[in-house]
Amino acid sequence: MATSDPSAPDRASGFRRLSDVRRLVRYVIAGSTAAGSHLATLTLLVELGGLRPLVASTVGFGVGLVVSYTLQRRWVFASLGRHRTLLPRFLTVIAVALLLNTVVVHLGTEVLTVHYALVQLVAFGLIPLNNYVLNSLWTFR
């Protein structure tokens, strides 16, 4: 009868860690796609539409939200949950992100008068970790 070596790596936990890494990579790709759509919308609305950066960023946030939810539900977390359960949770997490985005864009563009694109990139850097943790543990669990 063979005994298992307690110092040997647990194969199941190794697969789980690899799965977590893959999910995190997918999250980064999905988030980058959503951020790109947000930034493109923001830029078009400011440069071609003449909107103020805060308004344009809010509209861009909405576009990014649709892209993000679709990719996260189907590809990142591969959730089989129903929209009526998942979407309100996702929107709660996004509401916190929108608040953070709004504060950063307002302070950066209106108070500090920094270029809107740079300010938006700062906001993009602050939001993803919070969203990943909340969506992983609550929204799409």
Rank of each mutant, 00 (worst) to 15 (best):
residue 2 A to D: 03
residue 5 D to F: 00
residue 6 P to Y: 00
residue 7 S to Y: 00
residue 8 A to S: 01
residue 9 P to Y: 00
residue 10 D to T: 08
residue 10 D to A: 04
residue 10 D to N: 15
residue 10 D to W: 02
residue 11 R to S: 11
residue 12 A to H: 06
residue 14 G to H: 05
residue 14 G to R: 11
residue 15 F to Y: 07
residue 16 R to V: 11
residue 17 R to Q: 12
residue 18 L to T: 07
residue 20 D to G: 06
residue 20 D to F: 04
residue 21 V to S: 06
residue 23 R to W: 01
residue 23 R to S: 08
residue 24 L to M: 06
residue 26 R to S: 03
residue 26 R to W: 03
residue 26 R to F: 02
residue 27 Y to Q: 01
residue 27 Y to I: 02
residue 29 I to W: 00
residue 29 I to G: 01
residue 29 I to P: 02
residue 31 G to C: 02
residue 32 S to H: 00
residue 33 T to C: 08
residue 35 A to E: 01
residue 35 A to Q: 01
residue 36 G to T: 05
residue 38 H to A: 05
residue 38 H to Y: 06
residue 39 L to M: 07
residue 39 L to G: 00
residue 40 A to G: 09
residue 42 L to M: 11
residue 42 L to A: 10
residue 43 T to K: 08
residue 43 T to S: 14
residue 44 L to D: 12
residue 44 L to I: 15
residue 46 V to I: 14
residue 46 V to K: 09
residue 46 V to F: 08
residue 47 E to F: 04
residue 47 E to I: 10
residue 48 L to G: 14
residue 49 G to N: 11
residue 49 G to R: 09
residue 49 G to H: 07
residue 51 L to F: 09
residue 53 P to E: 13
residue 53 P to Q: 11
residue 54 L to F: 08
residue 54 L to W: 10
residue 54 L to C: 12
residue 55 V to H: 12
residue 56 A to K: 08
residue 56 A to E: 12
residue 58 T to E: 13
residue 61 F to L: 10
residue 61 F to Q: 09
residue 61 F to Y: 12
residue 62 G to V: 08
residue 64 G to Q: 05
residue 64 G to L: 04
residue 65 L to V: 13
residue 65 L to A: 14
residue 65 L to S: 14
residue 66 V to S: 15
residue 67 V to T: 13
residue 68 S to Q: 09
residue 72 Q to E: 12
residue 74 R to L: 15
residue 75 W to H: 02
residue 75 W to M: 01
residue 75 W to K: 02
residue 77 F to N: 03
residue 81 G to H: 07
residue 83 H to L: 14
residue 83 H to I: 09
residue 84 R to D: 15
residue 86 L to V: 13
residue 89 R to F: 06
residue 89 R to Q: 14
residue 91 L to Q: 07
residue 92 T to K: 06
residue 93 V to M: 10
residue 94 I to P: 02
residue 96 V to M: 12
residue 96 V to S: 15
residue 99 L to W: 05
residue 99 L to K: 06
residue 99 L to C: 15
residue 100 L to N: 14
residue 100 L to Q: 09
residue 102 T to F: 10
residue 103 V to C: 13
residue 106 H to E: 11
residue 110 E to K: 03
residue 110 E to R: 04
residue 114 V to A: 04
residue 114 V to Y: 00
residue 116 Y to T: 13
residue 116 Y to W: 11
residue 117 A to K: 12
residue 118 L to R: 07
residue 119 V to E: 03
residue 120 Q to Y: 01
residue 120 Q to C: 03
residue 121 L to G: 03
residue 121 L to R: 01
residue 122 V to M: 03
residue 122 V to Q: 03
residue 122 V to R: 01
residue 122 V to P: 05
residue 125 G to Y: 01
residue 127 I to W: 01
residue 127 I to L: 07
residue 127 I to T: 08
residue 127 I to Y: 01
residue 129 L to R: 02
residue 129 L to S: 06
residue 130 N to R: 05
residue 130 N to T: 10
residue 130 N to F: 09
residue 130 N to P: 04
residue 131 N to P: 04
residue 133 V to D: 12
residue 133 V to P: 13
residue 133 V to N: 08
residue 134 L to S: 15
residue 135 N to P: 05
residue 136 S to M: 02
residue 137 L to N: 07
residue 137 L to K: 09
residue 139 T to C: 06
residue 140 F to R: 08
